[in-house]
Amino acid sequence: MKDFININHVYYQYDEDAASDQFALKGIDLTLGKGEFVAIVGHNGCGKSTLAKHLNSLYVPTTGDITVDGINTKDDDRLFEIRKKVGLVLQNPDNQIVAGIVEEDVAFGCENLGIPSDEIRSRVDAALKAVDMYAYRTHSPDKLSGGQKQRVAIAGIIAMEPECIVLDEPTAMLDPQGRDEVMTTIARLNRELGITIVLITHYMEEAVMADRVVVMDSGTILLTGTPAEVFPQVELLKQHRLDVPQATELIYQLRGAGYDLPQGVLNAGECADAIAGLIEKKRAGKV
């Protein structure tokens, strides 16, 4: 996999005059590959949102460097180039929709980039189809559900044809149905369009869908790996006051009680299969 974003020993301080220990990010080193789906988890105030805002140069590191496709985010002259490559979707879907009509909002970014009208039209249509909101193109955003609004916000980014989309807790304000809609959309964009996804979340069942999970705590990276590598470390995650999926926790407890079960179990299906398998084995052993 080709490197896309390189985060190199980044420290960040909100208030430069504050005491030297008040860093929101404390030495972050991370490389994101092109086309990767990475979830960043951690509880509120761990620095995950601050990091997200660094990826499209809304914030620049106090010390250290970040490069996006080779461009340093401190390079002011190439700011729009970076923002074109890395789109950011925020938590509250209501507050990021600018125009009063769905398709006109989706066009907003392209219009700012000075793209010719015909091309904007085709990009907007394609973006709305990609998030499955084409049927609502002439609707007013007010009449949409939270999940639909968030998908419109994502379409607004997709129309700019980015290589990477960073989503900062995009489902925190949505109901379960809206959450599903958004997660399905994100996964599809990653799989079908090859867009790099950085998902900031505190829902572990969402993080499970990623290729790689980065766990953050108080401005540092605590742990990184595939979901199957990260979540079985129940003890460590709980120490840092993080949740694990119930399936993973059950297996962890059963393993702790001495039962022979596989480690990287993440969802209900795998969990039930594993337990059923063990019971089967015991039965067979007895007979």
Partner: peptide, 12 residues
């Protein structure tokens, strides 16, 4: 929030 979102979409 809106100002941030507009910046992210290259409003100038």
């Amino acid at each position: 929030d809106l100002a941030t979102a507009m910046e992210c979409r290259c409003y100038n």
